[in-house]
Nucleic acid binder design. Structure first.
Ligand SMILES: NC(=O)c1ccc[n+]([C@@H]2O[C@H](COP(=O)([O-])OP(=O)(O)OC[C@H]3O[C@@H](n4cnc5c(N)ncnc54)[C@H](O)[C@@H]3O)[C@@H](O)[C@H]2O)c1
Ligand SMILES: NC(=O)c1ccc[n+]([C@@H]2O[C@H](COP(=O)([O-])OP(=O)(O)OC[C@H]3O[C@@H](n4cnc5c(N)ncnc54)[C@H](O)[C@@H]3O)[C@@H](O)[C@H]2O)c1
Lengths: 224, 224
DNA sequence: AATCGATTGTGAACAAGAGAACTAGCTTGT
DNA sequence: ACAAGCTAGTTCTCTTGTTCACAATCGATT
């Protein structure tokens, strides 16, 4: 009951944008820019300048009025807030089409999320090597995680297996899961779950595309 | 200026959930269920029952009080609203690791989004066959789209090429784009853009994981 | 030192979304 | 025909997120 965290609570929407700023700032840093205004950063991140300022203000007052933000320092602060200091491992479960593409992708490691284990249930795949890493069996999943290890689990199995895999990940101590299977997965309180559903994205785009098309037709009708 | 569309405007958040209901309903239908209540559907979709009712009410009054919704009829209505009647083609640009996985995936076609073209810039890849489809060159992109064709473009190229590809897609008449490259892409008004950024998802998960961890430490401290 | 232009940080208005509570209406059993 | 029990549809309130507008503050310039 003690006021343990008098910390400012960073809104969810802001958390989702911080990585975008981080990426833009990294690019700026690499091209030698030392200072950036909220307006410029907003342009790069594809958002509104006021939003940038408000988002950054949750981290503290790291800008200089009349000047802008020092790129390197701001980057350091976002790093700190996002927990980039301590790398977080990633376990990929399900090494089919998608899982293999993910395993072969270097972009995660580059951004501080090294793939630490590959897991599948297919005996034909277990034991084989992918991107310099041996595929382990899902039944051995408990032994994969060292105590206290912070790890993100990626589910890239068929939808039917997703909930089961999630349960096993949670049982093994994983508290963050990224689900690619097109199905609803539920996890206990305290476990964070995010999903990436490509078919869903297409359906959403499809809706707007179709709506625009019918609107255009309606507009044409009213012309006649 | 005429009130062409006296249509109820479906909120964005609702549009994003309709495909989820759609999937749950499809499962119900396949297992022979004919009627479903908002409560049950909410469970399957992982949301709140009130939200389900409100979302569905934007489509019209298709439920029966005291009973629930007729699965098949509701499915038909969502289909109609999402524009499932007319299939929407998908063009994948960039056939590396990820693009190939997408091209080999049947889940899109199954859900009404047949892949209609594969495009790359690498001469070594152009002309080769993938999943029964020939890879075309990006310079020929204009000729790929028949007039009036509604198509969604998927960008799976390196980040550096993404904006250029988006521009070419737009120039060729594509009005909906799904971007996988980890970079901000801007498109003209009237073009819909959605993004899937895996590294970003990991970073968001990483933030919460780290926050929880430090909170736990803080709590332990206050115990001592 | 005083002024000026620029840019941050934030209070407040505004908009969108979520969820609870209520109302209306159907179906079934008597 | 009527009552009882469900469940859809709607209204209201609360929360979250976005945007605007402006005062505070900095560096530069005279
Ligand atoms: N391939 C894509 O481009 C793509 C696109 C969108 C969504 N998805 C989704 O991603 C998931 C994976 O797709 P995919 O094409 O790679 O499928 P896939 O069938 O090629 O691969 C699935 C893998 O999961 C393994 N697996 C099955 N059950 C398992 C279990 N219980 N534990 C561990 N591993 C298990 C299988 O052995 C196989 O290697 C699917 O849910 C699919 O809908 C894939
Ligand atoms: N592979 C993954 O699992 C993964 C995960 C997350 C994000 N991504 C992102 O997805 C994108 C693709 O990743 P990848 O691993 O497939 O990369 P890749 O390098 O394997 O493939 C890129 C492909 O794009 C083609 N290409 C390059 N420029 C082009 C252009 N102007 N027009 C058309 N085609 C062009 C290349 O010829 C190549 O075939 C990248 O932006 C990457 O960051 C990939």
């Amino acid at each position: 009951m003690a006021p343990v965290s008098p910390r400012r609570r960073i809104p969810e929407a802001t958390v989702a944008r911080l990585p975008v700023y981080h990426r833009s700032l990294t690019e700026l840093k690499e091209s030698g820019v030392t200072t950036v205004s909220s307006e410029q950063l907003a342009d790069l991140a594809g958002v509104n300048a006021a939003k940038v300022r408000k988002d950054l203000s949750y981290l503290g007052s790291y800008g200089t009025r009349g000047v802008g933000y020092e790129v390197e320092y701001l980057l350091f602060q976002i790093d700190r807030e996002l927990g980039f200091a301590n790398d977080l491992g990633v376990v990929i479960v399900g090494l089919g089409n998608l899982g293999q593409a993910l395993a072969n992708y270097d972009g995660f490691g580059d951004r501080g999320f090294p793939v630490t284990a590959l897991v599948d249930a297919d005996p034909a795949k277990v034991g084989s090597t992918l991107h310099g890493m041996q595929v382990q069996h899902i039944d051995d999943i408990e032994s994969i995680f060292a105590d206290g290890d912070l790890t993100i689990g990626i589910i890239a199995t068929p939808a039917a297996a997703a909930q089961g895999v999630a349960d096993r990940l949670v049982a093994a101590g994983v508290r963050s899961i990224l689900n690619f299977a097109p199905t609803v997965v539920t996890v206990p309180d305290g476990v964070h779950l995010r999903k990436v559903d490509l078919a869903l994205e297409l359906q959403i785009l499809g809706f707007y595309e179709q709506r625009d098309a019918t609107e255009a037709v309606n507009a044409a009708d009213s012309d006649s």
